[in-house]
Every structure is written in structure tokens, then in C-alpha cells.
């Protein structure tokens, strides 16, 4: 956390020294600060800041790709005249525990076309989702658990390196 604040401070310093307060320049300053901190990471106590940032960036790209592919799939289903979808309501056992993890997962599931989260059970163990292309129930469940949920939880659960 303190590394993040240091990084932000470096970005602000870059912006004020270069005298150009635009979002792009702020981002550039943040990147330079990140690089500087990364190169001198042995000087600080072990922290999971670098790992978190790297996995977060990877996850954003992974999710953007999923969003595009799956949106095209739903668009194809809408535009072709015959319905060849196989909807199901599926119970998905959760590995996420805290409220934040569950709501993040539910939002991401809803934004991935083809799946829509309906409700969480009262004891927060099962998430019920409506899946549009679910001929094979088990493969949909595995896909979400191994791809989306595992990657999401790995962002902040992995130990510092």
C-alpha cells in the first residue's frame, strides 16, 4: 500500500516537473515511477504490490478479450433467425468468501455475455447464474471457476514475492 502511495507521489512529481497536467502525462509519470520502483524493489521490504499490479493488468486484458469474443457470440445468436441456444440456471459453488470478492465476481459474470448472475444464497456459498450456451453444464461451471474466478482471486490472494 505504501509502495502504491510512493508510486502516486512519483507520478505527481513527474507531472509537476514536466508542467503538463493531462491524464496521459499522469499515466506516463505513473509508469515511469512504477519502473523506477520495480528496478529498486530489493531496497524495500517484500511486498505484493508488483505482483498485484502485474496480475491486475493481465486480468484487465484477459477480461477485455473475453468481453469482445463473448459479445460477438451473443450478437450472432441474436442476428441469426433460429434459436440454437441452450439456456440453463446453474448453481455455482463459490471459492470467493468476502462480500467484495463475491460482488466483484458477480459483476464480472454479468458482464461476460452468455452468463448472468441471478442471486447469491443467504449463506454465501452458492451463486446462481443463468447461462445462455450451456449444453454441457459441467464445462460452463469449470470454465468460470478455473478461468474467471481463479484469475480474479489470484490477483490479491497470492503471497508477496
Amino acid at each position: 500500500m505504501s509502495l502504491f502511495l510512493t508510486n502516486l507521489l512519483l507520478a505527481l512529481l513527474w507531472v509537476s516537473l514536466s508542467g503538463n497536467f493531462s491524464p496521459a502525462n499522469l499515466l506516463f509519470g505513473y509508469l515511469i515511477g512504477y519502473l523506477a520502483l520495480f528496478l529498486s524493489r530489493r531496497a524495500f521490504a517484500p511486498s505484493n504490490y508488483f505482483g498485484v499490479v502485474e496480475r491486475l493488468v493481465r486480468f484487465v486484458f484477459f477480461f477485455a478479450w473475453e468481453l469482445i469474443v463473448a459479445n460477438l457470440r451473443v450478437a450472432y445468436e441474436v442476428l441469426t433467425p433460429r434459436h440454437n441456444m441452450h439456456p440453463r440456471v446453474i448453481a455455482l459453488p463459490l471459492q470467493a468468501h468476502t462480500d467484495f470478492e463475491i460482488s466483484a465476481l458477480a459483476i464480472l459474470i454479468s458482464l461476460t455475455p452468455g452468463t448472468l448472475s441471478l442471486d447469491v444464497s443467504a449463506d454465501k456459498k452458492v451463486l446462481y447464474i443463468h447461462a445462455m450456451f450451456a449444453e454441457d453444464e459441467e464445462s460452463v461451471r469449470n470454465d468460470i471457476q478455473n478461468n474467471l474466478e481463479a484469475r480474479l482471486l489470484a490477483i490479491w490472494r497470492q503471497p508477496p514475492s
Binding site: 441456444m85 441452450h86 440453463r88 449463506d123
Partner: peptide, 22 residues
């Protein structure tokens, strides 16, 4: 929809308390 293959939610709602059981 009648083409829906299965419904895992059926029977899991307590209609009086609005609680969802797992």
C-alpha cells in the same frame, strides 16, 4: 423459455422469508 434445459434455482427460495437456500 421451454428450451431451458435445467433450473437449479427451482425450490431453493423460501417464499415467506425471501431467503435463498444453498
Amino acid at each position: 423459455w421451454e428450451g431451458t434445459l435445467s433450473d437449479a434455482l427451482r425450490g431453493h427460495y423460501d417464499r415467506r422469508t425471501h431467503r435463498l437456500l444453498s
